[in-house]
Each structure stands twice: as structure tokens, then as C-alpha cells.
């Protein structure tokens, strides 16, 4: 067994943020320890009101080598953006 603590990814929701944002990673022995460490490492300057942590090994990620098939087909489909629609004035600012 490795003596190194496992790696955790840290997500913080700020005072005015609507969602948790990835802020970085750290090492910790377990989830509670990871939250305490995240508090000390990533919220020292009053950044957050909520912390999520997830063990890095639990994250499934897309592979960079599949970039082409995954993302290129969306490039020339500008009509998928909602910019072609006329917004009625009564709606106001969106």
C-alpha cells in the first residue's frame, strides 16, 4: 500500500456563486480530512461558503485523444446557438 495519501479534487462555492467550481486538488487520508484540508488550503481568503471534495480516482474523464470525434462535429453547427432568435421586447433583458 502506498504511504502517500490519496489525491482529492476540491470544488468551492463562493459567496455569490451559484455553483461549485473546481479550485484545485490536495492530498488527504479520507473525505472528512480532505474537507478540513480544503478549508485550510483553499478558503483562507474568505472564498467559500460550501466545499465539495471527490477522490480524483473516482472521476471519469474524456480522453484528449478523442478530441476530434467528440468536439469537432459541433464546430460548424452555429444554428445550435440561440443567437438567431428574435427576443420580443416585452421579455426584457435576459
Amino acid at each position: 500500500m502506498s504511504k502517500e495519501w490519496p489525491l482529492w479534487e476540491v470544488f468551492i462555492r463562493g459567496t455569490h456563486g451559484m455553483s461549485h467550481r473546481h479550485v484545485g486538488s490536495l492530498h488527504a487520508a479520507d473525505a472528512e480530512h480532505a474537507i478540513r484540508n480544503a478549508r485550510d488550503v483553499y478558503t483562507r481568503r474568505n472564498e467559500g461558503v460550501s466545499i465539495w471534495v471527490v477522490e480524483t480516482s473516482q472521476i471519469a474523464a474524456s480522453s484528449p485523444s478523442e478530441k476530434g470525434p467528440l468536439y469537432d462535429p459541433a464546430r460548424d453547427k452555429a444554428y445550435r446557438h440561440p443567437t438567431f432568435f428574435h427576443i420580443p421586447e416585452e421579455v426584457g433583458k435576459m
Binding site: H27, A28, D40, V41, R44
Partner: peptide, 11 residues
Amino acid sequence: PALEEDIALAN
């Protein structure tokens, strides 16, 4: 003993 503990101790 670890970067995270170091910061916590300093805090």
C-alpha cells in the same frame, strides 16, 4: 509533515 498540514498549522 505534509503541505496541507503545514498550511493548517500556519493558519
